[in-house]
Simulated assay, not measured.
Amino acid sequence: MTLVSSLAGRQRHSRAPRTSSRVPLMIGGAIGAASVAAVAYLLWPTWHVQPVGDPDRTPVTIGDTLFNVPTKAFRVKYQRRSGPQERVDLAFLYPSLAPPEHVAHKTAEQIAEFQPIDRIFVSIAAHHDALAPDTRLRTIYPRYLAPVAPQTADGLTLRSFVEGSPYANEDLFTADQPELSARCTRDRQTPGMCLSEIRVDGADLTFRFPRQWLTQWREVAHAIAQLAAQMHVRG
């Protein structure tokens, strides 16, 4: 009997330290859980951030040239991404030059058939060492210009292309101060449209706008220069 009592006492004593060692662990766990809950409660408002839409501008690289493009100006949905691209197509309201809230996914000619155009269309594409726009103006266009005296009005010079040439039914407008060159279709069933090109490092920028805007051609020239300067990231 004495032996049995002794063994039972030893077992009780051996269990006591184990039980007592678990108590601090349980207390510590409870304190840790309470601390995490308190921190979570304090930080909870910061976890409910409102959904963020597209950033105001999207950086794209075209022809190894960096452009910072207003996100809402993209006319083609799949082009609305940052990184290298071969070409992007954009639209800007005129004369504000702000990107439109809703861009119609139509060509400039299609829009001209239905409503007056209130925007300037811009395409940026890698040129891959193709003939520069200013070189084309000096060496290619003169071959197809009609042999008549140019017409100059308010500093803007008009020369027509000959019939049967690659630029038939088009006219060439040029000016020096400010600098502008534009090849424009003539008004037919739809209003005439103009195309003006400039080169920026590895990319060519093509601007399209209604021919009738040339009645205020200086404002158009300034708009083209302003858009190019705003999007091109120098350096």
Rank of each mutant, 00 (worst) to 15 (best):
S82P: 08
F207D: 03
Q79M: 01
E86T: 08
F114Y: 08
L90A: 02
W213L: 00
L7W: 15
R15I: 14
T71R: 04
L214V: 01
P55W: 05
H13S: 15
R138D: 11
A104C: 06
A8N: 10
T19P: 00
Q50H: 14
L97V: 06
L205V: 02
N68P: 06
A108W: 11
T190H: 13
E86L: 11
P147H: 08
V122W: 01
V49W: 08
D56V: 14
D154V: 06
L195F: 15
F74R: 03
N169W: 00
L137V: 13
A132E: 10
R15T: 14
E170W: 08
E113W: 00
R188S: 15
V60I: 07
S196D: 02
L156N: 03
D134V: 12
S82C: 06
S20E: 15
C194M: 09
E163R: 11
A229C: 07
A8I: 10
I198N: 07
R81G: 09
Q230K: 10
K106F: 04
D56C: 08
R218L: 01
Y167Q: 08
S21A: 15
A125M: 13
L195N: 15
P51M: 08
I117D: 02
D56N: 13
Q212S: 01
A108V: 11
A229V: 09
S20W: 15
D134T: 12
Q85I: 01
R18A: 13
S5F: 12
A40I: 11
D64R: 08
S6G: 11
Y167M: 10
D171Q: 12
S14E: 11
V88E: 01
T157L: 04
A203M: 02
L43N: 14
T174E: 10
